[in-house]
Simulated scan of single mutants.
Amino acid sequence: MLKNSLNKFAKSVLLSSFLLGSHLLASEVTQIRNATVKINYGGKVFLVDPMFAVKDAYKGFEGTLNSHLNWPRVELPFSTDEILKDVDAVIITHTHEDHLDEVAIKELPKNILIFVQDEKDKNYLEKFGFTNIKIMKEDTFLGNVKLSITAGQHGSDEVMSYAKDVLGEVSGVIFQAKNEKTIYLAGDTVYNKYVEDVVERYSPDIIILNAGDAKLENGDSIIMGKEDVLKTHKIAPKSIIIASHMEAVNHASLTRGELKSFVKENGIEDFVLIPKDGESLEF
């Protein structure tokens, strides 16, 4: 009964061609490209990790898989004007270029409200003339929406032992509001105790995972892959998982097609949504 109900639910939420930025009664998550998502939640519109460059604008990240390939690997599905329409606040989980690039820095209004993870990122943005920056805490509010910063780790303990200076600090965020489903956007983290602790504490209904399995040149993963998606499902078996951060940077190793086959093989296709760029999910 539960599986059938969730199957109907999963099919009903997968929508195509929703207008960006429209204030709907339900929560809406729009996958834009890479880790850039737009979340219409609690009457507010949030833009997460904007990366606006045209296809192939940047050279591949040195020291990563397929560093010979330029990125972004695909074009934006919408114009930047459409993406920025009705945005109330921007959330920057960390300042790596594939989460905040030079084009976004140029095109974001300098007075737009931006939430960041720490003083270091705040200072970084202030250098570009942004004037309305707040550091997220566990009880940060915008209107009726409560934002709570969450911890993450941009690689395993082993990876961080030799690459911490490059990978740096990362974060995620919990979205909560009255009469809304709790959303957990995990950010650039691998599966670890931080993720387990967040799921245990907040019991999120919807979990957005950066699941493209980006790798360093030695093959070490620095964000989640398909096995991490399965692990997350096992600790949150009733949650709907949305796979983001896929097929857009040179070092992403997991395709949507591969993930789709994996979740089907493991019988979790009712719980894992894999939106295309430009696709919206309504809850």
Rank of each mutant, 00 (worst) to 15 (best):
A211T: 07
E102T: 11
H94A: 09
I149F: 06
K44G: 10
D56T: 12
L15V: 11
K59I: 06
D157E: 08
E227N: 11
F175A: 14
R33P: 06
D81M: 03
A35M: 03
T36G: 02
D188S: 13
N266R: 14
K11S: 13
D121K: 10
V272Y: 00
N250D: 13
Y202D: 10
L19A: 12
K55T: 10
Q117A: 14
A57G: 14
N192A: 10
V74R: 15
F271C: 10
G212H: 05
S67L: 03
G267Y: 06
K215H: 09
H68R: 15
H154W: 01
I241Q: 13
H68W: 10
K110F: 02
I39H: 00
S16V: 08
L273M: 08
A163I: 00
K264D: 02
S244N: 13
I222G: 10
K234H: 12
E227R: 12
P275H: 05
V195Q: 04
V48S: 08
K44W: 02
F130R: 07
G172R: 03
D118N: 10
K11L: 11
D157T: 06
N218Q: 12
S261Q: 14
I183Y: 04
M51W: 06
V48N: 09
D56K: 15
E282K: 14
F262N: 06
D228V: 01
L273H: 07
S253N: 11
L185N: 11
I242Y: 03
P275A: 06
N218I: 04
S12D: 10
E269W: 03
F130T: 10
R256V: 03
T131L: 01
E158H: 09
G187R: 07
A243S: 13
E217L: 05
D121W: 00
T150M: 11
S221G: 09
K193L: 14
I133L: 03
V29G: 09
T36A: 08
G60D: 07
I222F: 00
S280F: 02
E169H: 15
T150S: 12
N132C: 00
N179R: 07
K110R: 08
S148P: 09
S239N: 06
N40P: 05
H233M: 04
Y184F: 01
E138H: 13
D88L: 02
S27V: 00
S239Q: 01
L14K: 14
L84Q: 08
E196M: 13
V90R: 07
D98E: 12
S239T: 09
K122R: 11
I32N: 06
K264P: 01
M160Q: 08
E217P: 02
T80P: 15
F46R: 09
